[in-house]
């Protein structure tokens, strides 16, 4: 069986190299089908470079393995699982959602929500005292009764004078 597999790989590699449009090759798996899966995998030999574009020999072999597995009828999920089992979770583009790895998905939203909460609270703290001293404060508050467009032009002219 294994020997047969090997011969099959060889045939497929050769087929891949010599047939023009591999779509029509017998039992053919196109480069595009291989790349669609390879794109989502990362080979440890060239770190942080997706498998579909990594030029090393090891990665070329991986792509051929995907081709072989596709021709055997394995699904995308099965192939990915095979690679995880054989080479570890690092082959995936992001950590699997299990155990400790949940941290990477949970922590940023918590921080962002925390930041938003702090900002919102500060807004409220900053706006509240304002209502008390509103009488002393706002020169722009006085202008707000006039129509917006005029206010804009007025503000603008004022600024122009200032800039001269």
């Amino acid at each position: 069986m294994k020997k047969f597999l090997f011969i099959l790989t060889l045939t497929l590699v050769l087929a891949g190299l010599f047939t023009a449009t591999t779509v029509f090759a017998q039992g053919g798996v196109t480069d595009d089908e291989v790349n669609a899966i390879a794109k989502q995998l990362y080979c440890p030999v060239c770190e942080n470079t997706p498998l579909d574009v990594c030029p090393t020999e090891a990665c070329r072999q991986w792509r051929e393995l995907i081709r072989l597995q596709l021709s055997e009828g394995m699904t995308e999920a099965q192939i990915k699982q095979y690679f995880v089992d054989n080479y570890g979770a690092r082959v995936l583009a992001e950590p699997p959602r299990t155990g400790l790895h949940w941290l990477i998905y949970i922590l940023p939203p918590i921080f962002i929500l925390g930041g938003a909460f702090i900002l919102f609270n500060s807004f409220r703290a900053w706006t509240k005292p304002q209502s008390v001293e509103a009488g002393t404060g706002g020169e722009s508050g006085a202008a707000s009764s006039s129509p917006e467009r005029d206010e804009y032009v007025a503000r603008f002219e004022e600024e122009l004078k200032k800039r001269k």
């Binding site: 770190e47 570890g88 992001e94």
Partner: peptide, 19 residues
């Protein structure tokens, strides 16, 4: 995170474009 994962579990992970 990959540093934490490597220290805690001994296994490297990739944090790539999808994340």
């Amino acid at each position: 995170y990959p540093l934490i994962s490597e220290l805690a579990t001994g296994q490297k992970v990739t944090v790539g474009p999808p994340y």
